[in-house]
Write a protein that binds this DNA or RNA. Structure first.
Lengths: 106, 106
DNA sequence: AAAATATACATTGACAGGCGAGGTATATAG
DNA sequence: CTATATACCTCGCCTGTCAATGTATATTTT
């Protein structure tokens, strides 16, 4: 929504992985969930979201499959892989370190 | 140095402004100071540093003047402006908010 | 005296992530 | 029947980062 986007840059993949740590999900739902969690303070732009999915899938961090909805628009579900879980944990640690780093610098 | 760069992206200007809040300084010194503060965990690449200076100066956030060194390499000193101080304060607030936002999402 | 290192500034061109703008398709509410 | 919500996707631009490269002076090492 606001000015935060620049500062969240670089966390997009981790945010998506975090959602997929809870359960398999699809783009639209993930984004809604982010909006709810942040009281509409933040959302991923669709182009950002889907390009992140591509990167993550190409890197073997997530896998996708089509949902079996008989009604409504089709959904492409994503599932986090072992590799993806490991990346998520690593990114979380990096975030903890980076937070301290920035706090000490600004 | 390491993997942090992606996550610090977006904070470069604020980090520079933070240094200039303390005192007028020049590129090389600012970078050394950052390295010392972070125990060599982080440093700005020169190209990044100088392009940030350009942006900040063009935006009226900092002003520059040549030092009067009679020996050694010349130094271009930077001074933070009123506008720059305001931006710094705003960026700090944004950081506080963003930190919470990311913490809630990952 | 020569070579290496430290100090100090600067530019160029490539790269990657974010995103505006545009497009497709189905279902429901007014 | 029109608007809105759900759901996916791509193209091409913009911006910040950074490797590589270049300049110049001073000190330290060999």
């Amino acid at each position: 929504m606001s000015l935060t986007s620049d500062l969240v840059r670089g966390h997009t993949e981790t945010i998506i992985l975090a959602q997929l740590m809870k359960k398999d999900s699809y783009g639209y739902e993930i984004n809604k969930s982010i909006q709810e969690t942040t009281n509409n303070e933040y959302e991923l732009k669709e182009a950002t979201l889907y390009s992140a999915f591509r990167r993550l899938e190409n890197g073997g961090m997530i896998e996708s499959y089509w949902g079996d909805e008989t009604t409504g628009a089709r959904r492409r579900y994503y599932k986090i892989t072992i590799l993806g879980k490991a990346l998520y944990e690593k990114n979380k640690e990096d975030w903890t370190r980076t937070k301290k780093l920035i706090d000490s610098l600004i």
